[in-house]
Structures are given as structure tokens and as C-alpha cells.
């Protein structure tokens, strides 16, 4: 009679897992690495906590962003566990700073670039397995358990926002799973957002006193970001492609 008993036990465990995980807000797929360590993988209906009424977005004021400041990049790296290994061509880069000079006027600007969380994301369109997906609240993610590492999303992304993990990774953060041979990008710190927080880059930018990044619900007319967008002109990058990015830039 051992077998039925074992079956019941397994069933009970999966029930607990399911309940636990929906409570945690997110991932359908979970992997137990060792006792006490569980990786969430943003799987399937990871949108459990996503509110279809919201659309999370960023507004970046290029005038306030300083060329010599890298706080947003460092904060993202610390928060999500990707780092500089001395191979810039293959290192993951969830967020990067770009310095620009206007061709006609010579005006110099600096800005952070990351996943633009498009309303019509090309990475989601081209992904053969549906591993690239957009949550109901507009956050574009990669399900690390469904990504086969074909890199077609990297070919399709107009913003070079995605990185391929080129070598085995260690010491991952449990809230930001990574895997050799899969593709990753900015998650808009979904683990913080789902708990009512804001992305690490925005927080770090604010701490420097520059305040160049604003996070909020684009669908809520009363939100600070919606008010700012209403007041000042802004653009989405590659607006010609009509992807309607969730990240907008003012004074660019």
C-alpha cells in the first residue's frame, strides 16, 4: 500500500506549491534547486498578479540624465544578479547608458536604454515557443523554462535590449532566474512592482538626486507619470514602427 500513499503525498505537495506560487504572485513553473531555494521562471500565466487595467511604464527626462552617472545600471545589476565579467561583447546588459550627439545641432545627451516594454513587442511575435510574452499589465518577460535559446527575439528587437546568457551562471537571485543558453532582458523589476514597489533603476536614479526616471501606471490618468506625459512632450524610440513602447523619453 506504499504506492497510493506516496501518490497522495506528491499530490498534496503540488497543491501546496500551486497555492504558494499564486500567492507569491507569479510563476507557473518553479524549480527546486536545493532545499529552501526555489527559482521562479516567469512561466505561463505568470501574469497571476498582473492587473489588466494597468500599463506600467517609464518616463525618462533626458535633460536630467547625466553622462557620468551609471547608478541605474549598477542598481539593476545588483538587483538582478547580472554582472560585468570582462567580456563586454557577450556580457548580459539589461540596461545600458548611451551618450549621443545631435547630428545637426551638436547637442549632447545621455540616457538609459533597456527593454522598452512595447505594446506590440516584436520579440513576442517572433518567439516560436511563446517564451517571450507580455503580461496583462504590459510588462514583457521571458519564460526561462520555455526559451529554447534560438535568439530570434534578439534579431527582432529594435532596441538591442536583450542578452543571451553565454556561459553558466552562479549565485542567481531567486526573484530573477537566469540560465545559460536562454535569453533575458529587463523585467521592469516585476518582483518589486508586484509588491507595490518600483524598479531598482528608478529608485537609484532618484537617490542620486537626478530624478531622471519616473515609473507608474500609464493607464491611470491621475498617476504622476500620466500627468507628466500630459504636460510635456515625449517620444517613444522608433515611433515609426508603431510598437507603442511603455518607456518614453522627454527632451530627446
Amino acid at each position: 500500500m506504499k504506492l497510493p500513499a506516496l501518490k497522495t503525498a506528491v499530490k498534496d505537495l503540488s497543491e501546496i506549491d500551486r497555492r504558494e506560487f499564486f500567492k507569491a504572485g507569479g510563476a507557473v513553473a518553479t524549480v527546486a534547486l536545493s532545499s529552501g531555494v526555489t527559482l521562479m521562471a516567469f512561466g505561463g500565466a505568470a501574469s497571476a498578479n498582473a492587473d489588466a487595467g494597468k500599463r506600467w511604464g517609464l518616463l525618462i527626462d533626458v535633460n536630467k540624465c547625466k553622462s557620468d552617472c551609471n547608478a541605474c545600471v549598477t542598481a539593476c545589476s545588483d538587483e538582478n544578479g547580472w554582472e560585468d565579467t570582462g567580456n563586454p561583447e557577450t556580457d548580459a546588459q539589461w540596461i545600458r547608458k548611451v551618450d549621443l550627439t545631435h547630428k545637426q545641432t551638436g547637442r549632447e545627451v545621455s540616457l538609459p536604454m533597456m527593454c522598452q516594454h512595447c505594446e506590440q513587442p516584436p520579440c513576442v511575435d517572433v518567439c516560436p515557443t511563446g517564451a517571450s510574452f507580455k503580461r496583462a499589465d504590459g510588462i514583457v518577460l521571458v519564460d526561462k523554462h520555455a526559451c529554447i535559446g534560438c535568439r530570434y527575439c534578439m534579431m527582432a528587437c529594435p532596441f538591442k535590449a536583450r542578452s543571451f546568457v553565454h556561459e553558466p551562471v552562479e549565485n542567481q537571485k531567486s526573484h530573477a532566474p537566469r540560465g545559460n543558453g536562454t535569453v533575458e532582458s529587463c523585467t521592469l523589476c516585476v518582483h518589486r512592482v508586484d509588491k507595490g514597489g518600483s524598479p531598482a533603476c528608478v529608485e537609484a536614479c532618484s537617490e542620486t538626486g537626478h530624478g531622471a526616471m519616473m515609473f507608474g501606471d500609464l493607464n491611470d490618468p491621475a498617476s504622476e507619470i500620466s500627468q507628466a506625459l500630459k504636460q510635456y512632450s515625449s517620444i517613444g524610440l522608433r515611433d515609426d514602427l508603431r510598437l507603442n513602447p511603455g518607456v518614453r523619453y522627454s527632451n530627446l
Binding site: C127, P128, G130, I148, G149, C150, G179, T182
Partner: peptide
């Protein structure tokens, strides 16, 4: 592929908006 071991997944889980 980055994860050739997941080939079965590519055959069973499809996003038909993808030409791939």
C-alpha cells in the same frame, strides 16, 4: 540552439504568430 535539449518543447508549444 542555446537549449537544444528543449527541442520537444519547440514542437509541442507553438506561437503561430512566429514564422519560426
Amino acid at each position: 540552439l542555446g537549449r537544444p535539449d528543449r527541442l520537444l518543447l519547440a514542437m509541442t508549444k507553438n506561437n503561430f504568430k512566429s514564422i519560426f
